[in-house]
Amino acid sequence: MEIDGLISAIFIGIVIGVLGRLAIPGRQRIGVLWTIAVGIVAALIGSALAAGIGVADTDGVDWIEWLIQIGLAAVGVAALDRVKARR
């Protein structure tokens, strides 16, 4: 992965993490860095899943891929929030 790919993955991860956090109602007890980390992981896994089912490379915006990534980020934020709440 080149540096421009890494920078774009971080930027997309930030956006995905924030959107995933906004998809969950209520207050989450995780910080901004955890949100970004969850977003980056969700973006990478979501891209792999979208490529696996054949919806990653379409003409225009890949809405299904974005929805998969945001859904994974929401699940990740909720899971991390639940783990933090138990401590």
Rank of each mutant, 00 (worst) to 15 (best):
residue 3 I to R: 08
residue 3 I to G: 10
residue 4 D to Y: 14
residue 5 G to A: 05
residue 6 L to M: 15
residue 6 L to W: 15
residue 6 L to H: 04
residue 7 I to L: 15
residue 7 I to D: 04
residue 8 S to E: 11
residue 9 A to L: 15
residue 10 I to H: 03
residue 10 I to Y: 05
residue 11 F to C: 14
residue 12 I to K: 13
residue 12 I to Q: 11
residue 13 G to W: 09
residue 15 V to F: 11
residue 16 I to R: 02
residue 17 G to E: 11
residue 18 V to E: 10
residue 19 L to C: 15
residue 19 L to N: 02
residue 19 L to G: 01
residue 20 G to M: 10
residue 20 G to Y: 00
residue 22 L to K: 15
residue 22 L to A: 14
residue 22 L to S: 11
residue 25 P to G: 06
residue 32 V to R: 02
residue 32 V to T: 13
residue 32 V to H: 04
residue 33 L to S: 03
residue 34 W to N: 02
residue 35 T to P: 00
residue 36 I to A: 09
residue 36 I to Y: 04
residue 38 V to T: 07
residue 39 G to R: 01
residue 40 I to E: 01
residue 43 A to H: 09
residue 43 A to Y: 07
residue 44 L to Q: 08
residue 46 G to N: 07
residue 48 A to V: 13
residue 50 A to D: 00
residue 50 A to Y: 06
residue 50 A to C: 06
residue 52 G to H: 09
residue 52 G to F: 07
residue 53 I to V: 12
residue 53 I to W: 05
residue 54 G to N: 04
residue 54 G to Q: 03
residue 54 G to I: 01
residue 55 V to Q: 10
residue 55 V to C: 09
residue 55 V to R: 05
residue 56 A to C: 02
residue 57 D to F: 14
residue 57 D to I: 09
residue 57 D to P: 10
residue 58 T to V: 15
residue 60 G to I: 11
residue 61 V to D: 05
residue 61 V to F: 08
residue 61 V to M: 12
residue 61 V to C: 07
residue 62 D to H: 13
residue 64 I to S: 04
residue 67 L to Q: 02
residue 68 I to G: 09
residue 70 I to R: 07
residue 71 G to E: 12
residue 72 L to H: 00
residue 73 A to E: 03
residue 73 A to N: 06
residue 73 A to T: 09
residue 73 A to K: 04
residue 74 A to T: 09
residue 74 A to E: 04
residue 75 V to F: 10
residue 77 V to A: 13
residue 78 A to E: 10
residue 78 A to H: 08
residue 79 A to I: 06
residue 79 A to Y: 10
residue 80 L to E: 09
residue 81 D to R: 00
residue 81 D to T: 10
residue 81 D to I: 01
residue 82 R to P: 00
residue 82 R to K: 15
residue 83 V to N: 04
residue 85 A to V: 10
residue 85 A to W: 12
residue 85 A to E: 10
residue 86 R to Q: 09
residue 87 R to E: 14
